[in-house]
Design a binder for these strands. Structure first.
Length: 419
DNA sequence: CGTGTTTGACCGGCGC
DNA sequence: GCGCCGGTCAAACACG
């Protein structure tokens, strides 16, 4: 590079001496110099971001360790020695890795995803997806190497609505498990495109005109994995055609591309939060979610499954968003998430990993109840931080950095987001 | 030719 | 039992 530069500069000087095309050469030289300095700047920026990411990763790891310590202590306190390398432990580690900083769980995944992500965010599209292999928790040995096995399992477990409904009625435990799958997260967002680009791969399998809305409702299923049970419905809001209502159902049973992780944790957190409350003995009653104001889970006649709605259409006005159930859109029941002042803790993985409804450990009720408590406590923060960060940060960085910041943000995170 | 979309048919739940 | 409705299937079609 330097050699080439020198050569060009030299030639330029010769030209200056030998000909009278001074102005042209001077312009070229200027251009070259400015490009050079531009590149220097970009390199520096690159380096700075790298350092920042490393720092974030470090902090995340230490926090992760702290959490595990606390968890072990808490668990031992309950007179139940924490199982070394239990399946839960392994699950946790799997989850922690898979959700960490929104990095691509599959290291072999090409950078193509990143590029796609950046270009798509330029269009100001939302990144969505349901990260967290909740189903994985039902497996004794979850993890990438088990996907094929799980796919087999789930091939016979695709949930046609009727069958799911039947199992729901067959027992509490089954109810909670199917509920995990069927918990719906509805996202309202302004979007000009037919669907939101959430980073996942979807295949349309149907379209219907739903009653009360002239706009057709489109049905998509996730195609990233043949057995992935996740589906989404996309429909324009009848009151405001610019608002796109996307309803997600189920959880991905495969690693997601980086571009899909930002909102993945968000919807997972929302679902987790919803399920934390709805899996109590009175699903339709007001739910107490730790310190959250009460909100009502929604069981519509058309869908017997709880639905939680994330309203991203209000971000422009107050820099946050609200969360409510469609049946109770009143200020009292809305949850506003505009605060950035909360103590930042890495909670994204907590929600992905601690959706307790999917825990299969029938014999370990203490563990489960602890997770319930933990989950309820962490959901709010996760939701708050994840969503607020993702939505309010600079669109150009939303998908790349937001996932990292959302879980790991420190006080300096805001600056990074703006960059 | 492979992949994704469209669209009418079909199915099950639910209310009357 | 019947009709309505939401959701899914699958053949036909479009596209690269």
């Amino acid at each position: 590079m330097e050699d080439v530069k020198g050569c060009n500069v030299g030639e330029g000087k010769i030209n200056i001496n030998e000909t009278c095309k001074c102005s042209e050469d001077a312009t070229k030289e200027d251009e070259f110099e400015s490009t050079k300095s531009e590149m220097r700047g970009v390199s520096e920026e690159n380096l700075r971001l790298k350092t920042l990411l490393q720092q974030i990763e470090k902090e995340y790891k230490s926090l992760q360790m702290k959490f595990m310590d606390i968890f072990h202590q808490e668990f031992n306190k309950n007179g139940n020695p924490f199982p070394e390398k239990s399946c839960f432990d392994q699950d946790q580690e799997q989850e922690l890795v898979s959700l960490r900083l929104g990095t691509n769980p599959d290291p072999t995944q090409p950078k193509k995803e990143d590029n796609h992500m950046i270009t798509s965010t330029k269009n100001d599209e939302l990144k969505l997806g349901l990260e967290c292999n909740l189903e994985g928790l039902t497996d004794k040995n979850p993890g990438p190497e088990n996907y094929s096995k799980k796919e087999d399992d789930e091939a016979g477990e695709k949930w046609p609505p009727g069958k799911v409904l039947k199992t729901q009625r067959s027992g509490d435990e089954e109810f909670s498990q199917t509920n995990v799958k069927r918990a719906r997260v509805c996202v309202r967002a302004k979007c000009d495109t037919p669907t939101m680009n959430d980073g996942c791969q979807w295949r349309k399998y149907g379209q219907k005109i739903a009653k009360g809305n002239p706009c057709p409702r489109a049905y998509y299923r996730c195609t990233a994995s043949p057995s992935c049970p996740v589906r989404k419905q996309v429909q324009r809001c009848v009151e405001d055609m610019s608002i796109l209502i996307t309803t997600y159902e189920g959880t991905h049973n495969h690693p997601l591309p980086l571009s899909a992780t930002a909102m993945a944790s968000t919807t997972a957190a929302a679902a987790s939060m919803l399920l934390s409350g709805s899996s109590t003995s009175q699903p339709s009653a007001t739910t107490n979610l730790y310190t959250l104001p009460p909100f009502h889970t929604n069981y519509s006649s058309s869908s017997p499954f709880p639905t939680i709605t994330l309203d991203l259409t209000t971000t422009a006005t107050h820099g946050g968003f609200s969360l409510y159930s469609p049946s109770s859109r009143t200020p009292a029941t809305n949850l506003s998430f505009s605060s950035m002042e909360s103590n930042m803790v890495p909670t994204v993985w907590g929600n992905g990993g601690f959706c307790y409804g999917s825990l299969p450990h029938k014999n370990d009720q203490k563990l489960q109840s602890y997770l319930e408590k933990f989950n309820q406590g962490s959901s709010q923060q996760a939701l708050t931080e994840t969503l607020t960060k993702v939505i309010t940060s600079d669109p150009n960085f939303r998908s790349v950095i937001a996932a990292a910041i959302s879980s790991m943000a420190t006080s300096g995170g805001e600056n990074l987001g703006q960059k």
